[in-house]
Design a protein around this nucleic acid. Structure first.
Length: 221
DNA sequence: GGTTGATCATAC
DNA sequence: GTATGATCAACC
């Protein structure tokens, strides 16, 4: 059994992947590259998990629980801007009284993130796209404040039975959107009268403007 | 062209 | 269904 990686080793391992194509990394781990991501949306994330030895699997934990680190890939376009929002975690829709930001799943997941920018250009064959320069991020006080504000606003609405009035337009940096296999999936939630209702499962997502600022700050000359 | 709501694969 | 990993694609 290998000794546990420390943060420095993980970061160096992630940094060493910069410049390699998905085909090269996949080959090194005995994986095949799909033609595109249409039916394999999480493939790049899983490739990086394999390459870095993430351990949490399908548990509701950070990817590297021993290090308190969450791994996130983020697809960028030719201009270095995020092409997609970033999924954080599913949203609790029942038993939300007493939930606080300090012990929320959102804060836990975002305390320390190992971001790995990836080439998201759809005009280039998936196998030829490359891995970018990894970086570690911990929210600044200002960033955490924005996240907490949005989280609190969403959770207040959920607690008041107004989950179905929430749209992705709400939130400065953290939005609430469906997170399910399809629009027919149902889960328990609090209704307008405090009763239990059935609704579409939701998840928290980081908006692209927020992640773009993180990217810009990180790679600013 | 950017976003929002919908969707895909897989393990359990 | 819930968890993980996300991107698709219709719409404004």
């Amino acid at each position: 059994m290998a000794t546990t990686m420390d943060l420095k080793q993980l970061f160096e391992k992630a940094s060493a992947l910069a410049g390699y194509s998905f085909a090269e990394v996949a080959a090194a781990h005995g994986l095949t590259v799909p033609a595109d991501l249409r039916r394999n949306k999480g493939w790049v994330g899983q490739l990086l998990e394999a390459a870095l030895g993430a351990s949490a699997g399908s548990q509701a934990l950070q990817d590297f629980p021993e290090l308190g680190v969450e791994l996130k890939t983020i697809p960028l376009n030719a201009a270095g801007k995020p092409l997609e929002t970033t999924f954080v975690c599913t949203t609790p829709l029942t038993q939300v009284t007493g939930l606080t930001w300090a012990d929320s799943n959102v804060r836990n997941k975002l305390q320390c993130v190992l971001w790995i920018p990836i080439d998201g250009r759809r005009e280039i064959p998936l196998a030829q796209r490359c891995i970018g320069t990894a970086f570690l991020w911990q929210p600044t006080a200002e960033e955490e404040h924005l996240l907490q504000q949005d989280w609190q606003e969403h959770m207040d609405r959920i607690a008041l039975g107004q989950v179905e009035t929430i749209t992705a337009h709400q939130g400065q940096v953290l939005q609430l959107r469906p997170k399910a296999a399809n629009s027919r999936v149902l889960t328990d939630a609090i209704g307008p009268g405090g009763e239990l209702i059935q609704t579409l499962p939701r998840g928290f997502y980081l908006k692209t403007q927020f992640t773009e600022q993180i990217i810009q700050r990180t790679f600013a000359l």
